[in-house]
Design a protein around this nucleic acid. Structure first.
Lengths: 186, 186
DNA sequence: GTCTATAATGGGATAGAC
DNA sequence: GTCTATCCCATTATAGAC
């Protein structure tokens, strides 16, 4: 009897690979390491992902889905673009303070592979432009000028960069304080 | 007759390696590539640098010296801690706008090798704590609170992270504007 | 002696075969 | 799942050119 394909294998592999890629970097993690963590055979993995690049792309796609969900939840709990912008910064600030947080996975990937234009890179860049667009939309919705959007974006970039630094907590607080003061109603 | 050792070989190798490491990342650049760029033989390089890690450490040491010089020059041209803080942000903002600029070499290295505690990593971390200390000193000199220092530092982190993004110029302007407004005399 | 050029070594990686 | 082909890389050893 032929065994039926186990469902959720793809997700299981991605779930095993994601924390490794995130923590140690994509380049530092080999396929053998992923296979061991997933507890599967080589054929199974290469059946689902023809190459490492495909697995990395899937990893970043999952990251993006999680991010969209978290940001969406933060936005849904707010009332109006002003509160929404504060909520976005606050959500990132909270995440940055988590001990395992090492920065934005997309940005880390782009730093790791600056000169390569592949599928994961496209996913990462798309995510950045999309997120930046959301900030711009929110600022426009509150009749703010483009400089305000650039400033909020700068705070977000700084926040991500401050992850895993000695003074992450202070940076996170400073970011929220700064965003609040920029967004204080005139 | 024995040939005398060529002077400046060490510097020549570092000068050849630095732009490669910076542009493509330390991991992506092989020793063969460095050797080709330096136009020397393998033995000569390994005579001056026992391993790749030593070469990378030398590269980051040069980067640090250049940074200290640039920041020092920017500070020397200013009058008082308030102007100095603006000058520091402005100097980075100018650098970020250069086409070849890809971010802070130290931060890039730490992102590339997050889980390794080696000599280059120590150099990079030392640089960050030292630079952060300078900001703190300047803020204290103008009787600012620690939150102000955290905010300036956040701006600097965001500025570096904004390098090689589609909207680098706007980020750079936003950073200077933001720093100026934070440092406007009360 | 100082250097270049080139092979050789050993480790680890992706990926395919079975 | 194991085994293997192939490649890349850091490093060392060797041979020869000036």
């Amino acid at each position: 009897m032929a065994r039926t394909a186990a469902p959720g294998t793809r997700e299981r592999i991605i779930t095993a690979a994601a924390p490794l890629f995130y923590r140690y970097g994509v380049r530092a993690v080999g396929m053998a390491q992923v296979i061991e963590a997933a507890g599967c055979g080589k054929n199974l993995l290469y059946g689902h992902f023809p190459g490492k690049s495909d697995l990395v792309a899937a990893y970043l796609t999952v990251v993006r889905a999680e991010r969209d969900r978290s940001i969406g939840a933060a936005l849904a709990a707010t009332d109006g673009p002003r509160a929404a912008l504060v909520a976005v910064v606050a959500e990132i600030a909270e995440r940055v303070r988590e001990p395992a947080f090492r920065g934005c996975a997309m940005r880390i990937y782009l730093t790791e592979f600056p000169a390569i234009d592949d599928e994961p890179g496209r996913i990462a860049r798309d995510y950045l432009t999309s997120t930046r667009g959301q900030i711009g939309d929110l600022v426009r919705a509150l009749d703010g000028d483009t400089v305000l959007a650039d400033q909020i974006w700068l705070i977000i970039e700084g926040l991500y960069a401050s992850a895993n630094r000695p003074d992450t907590d202070q940076s996170a607080m400073a970011a929220v304080t700064l965003a609040r003061s920029l967004l204080a109603a005139p």
